[in-house]
């Protein structure tokens, strides 16, 4: 390995006044689990998710089944007078999208106006959705279009981040390339601390709860 690597690790060990850790020490460090305090929650996780997500200018709709998703997306589209086109993640490909729409399942190009993708988890603690990169939810869907619609089955809502990590670990392929935790529309307060939505990413994020 590089000389710089050896120098830095050597300097770290010198500062710590010891040599490299032995295997037993390493094993015990690898086994170590900190049980950090989790902020208490006494409300219903789904209600909490909605309240928190809406508190940051996100919007939430709710439908009974996945089959109802396209109609709910179309309502959002109509409300903001968006073109009849969308980038839809692979997981939602099979849904019955309106026949007069242009729907594709690739990454979102610069001209994309609307994306629809499936969240891996909703986190009630902060009212955030977790999207795992891949064909079901390409990362560009979360940042390029002006309007982002996220489909979140209610059974994917967990109370704390810690539970979401467990879900990621159990996932096939483990940690996704990109794990995006999205808590509302893109925003900035860089000019005179005035909050402005739609800084670089979506101006609107609409979550559709299913179930």
């Amino acid at each position: 390995m590089s000389q710089a690597r050896d120098t830095i690790l050597g300097a770290v060990r010198e500062a710590l006044r010891r040599g490299p850790p032995d295997n037993a020490t390493r094993a015990s460090l690898d086994e170590k689990r900190f049980d950090h305090t989790r902020p208490s929650q006494d409300d219903d996780p789904v209600e909490r998710f909605i309240r928190k997500f809406e508190s940051r200018a996100g919007t939430v709709g709710r439908v009974a089944t996945l089959g109802d998703v396209p109609a709910e997306v179309d309502q959002h589209r109509a409300r903001f007078d968006l073109p009849k086109r969308a980038a839809v993640g692979n997981a939602l490909k099979a849904l019955d999208w309106p026949s007069d729409w242009t729907v594709h399942h690739g990454a979102a190009p610069i001209e994309e106006t609307l994306s629809v993708s499936l969240a891996s988890a909703g986190i009630a603690e902060t009212g955030s959705v977790l999207l795992a990169s891949g064909p079901d939810s390409p990362t560009t869907h979360n940042f390029v279009p002006d309007d982002q619609v996220v489909v979140l089955p209610v059974e994917h809502i967990v109370r704390w981040f810690e539970e979401a990590w467990d879900r990621l670990r159990q996932r096939e392929g483990g940690m996704p390339r990109a794990t995006n935790i999205v808590s509302g529309p893109s925003r900035t307060a860089d000019v005179e601390q005035t909050v402005q939505l739609g800084a670089h990413g979506p101006r609107r994020v609409h979550v559709i709860l299913v179930g």
Binding site: R56, G134, M175
Partner: peptide
């Protein structure tokens, strides 16, 4: 608003 974990480069099935 955004917290992102990045793990390696694009994967074979990534778009």
């Amino acid at each position: 608003t955004y917290t992102t974990f990045s793990t390696g480069p694009r994967r074979p099935d990534d778009l």
